[in-house]
Design a protein around this nucleic acid. Structure first.
Lengths: 162, 162
DNA sequence: GTTACTGCAAATCTTTTGCAGAAGA
DNA sequence: TCTTCTGCAAAAGATTTGCAGTAAC
């Protein structure tokens, strides 16, 4: 599937959405303009937006979009394996379908992507061993990013559990 | 550190808590009876309790313990690397400090632990590459467990994003 | 004796739900 | 035409915060 190759920003010819349309149809879903807009706001990006950020972005084109729709659609995309949820004080999404580790800074909230080829085989092995049908993955390291560690070598960090 | 060797249930001699006391002291924290009870209710167990479950358990010994205390203490323990948070509709905790993958069933909520020696080296490599100071990890696969897949081979699952 | 922890209650906010109307297929 | 999706508003919960009293060190 070539869905996540293009970090597109603009509206594209309807034919370009055939893949997503098929993917949705296979689950009894439909392809709507709102879903296209939400797709474009997240998939393929490396910005790790929150639901609110996606909402704001989509509203530039569809001012009436409601948070409920965005929540539902992002959940749907996550379930289709197009994006990944990231834990934190606020739920965020990672637009890259490729397996990678998300490094979440507990101080500044920044998310760093680190790709590693071992992840894929690890996932396969573990899932196979437990005969588990994987729909979504989450590989995260929470801590302090190098940028935040510099100005203040030691001391109490703002700890946010999630 | 020998902290998570004992899935103890009963109150133990004060001397046995020297390790935890030191660990807390290093962060300016104190060892209280409530914290001991919360520790015993989670650390070393494989039950993946929610905050509510921990609260209920602790209340058998300290009926007045409030959820706020449990939340704060579990966050603290997670930050100390003693336990791990697990994503889901409700926040849960994994009492095993050893790195492993949590398989979370989106249908029944069950959590399956799968240990794999590759995780530790993967974590080290990734953290080193990004010069990231790790405080907590989260390796999760979300999907359908074998038990839930049997009765209903195909069909719409209850999808809970988290 | 200090300082951190506890417990209570209220506030905060994210996320979900229900329903009527709109619009994909 | 038949469902599904959308949008609004309200509900439902989970998690956090503030403060006064208590207790660990």
């Amino acid at each position: 599937m070539s869905l996540n190759k293009e970090p597109v920003q603009s509206v594209r010819p309807a034919a370009a959405w055939a893949d997503l349309r098929r993917l949705l149809a296979a689950r009894g879903g439909r392809l709507t303009p709102q879903r296209i807009a939400i797709y474009e706001a997240v998939v393929g990006r490396t910005t790790h937006p929150s639901v609110e950020m996606v909402c704001d972005e989509v509203r530039r084109r569809f001012p009436s979009v409601s948070p409920a729709t965005v929540y539902a659609t992002l959940d749907l995309f996550a379930d289709l394996g197009l994006i990944q949820q990231i834990s934190g004080p606020v739920r965020r999404y990672d637009g890259q379908a490729a397996r990678h580790v998300n490094l979440v800074c507990q101080r500044c909230g920044r998310v760093i992507d680190v790709h590693d080829p071992r992840l894929r085989s690890l996932e396969r092995t573990v899932a196979a061993r437990a005969r588990f049908h994987v729909k979504a993955v989450r590989f995260e390291l929470h801590g302090i990013c190098p940028r935040c560690r510099r100005p203040r070598p030691r001391g109490p960090e703002m700890r946010r559990g999630a």
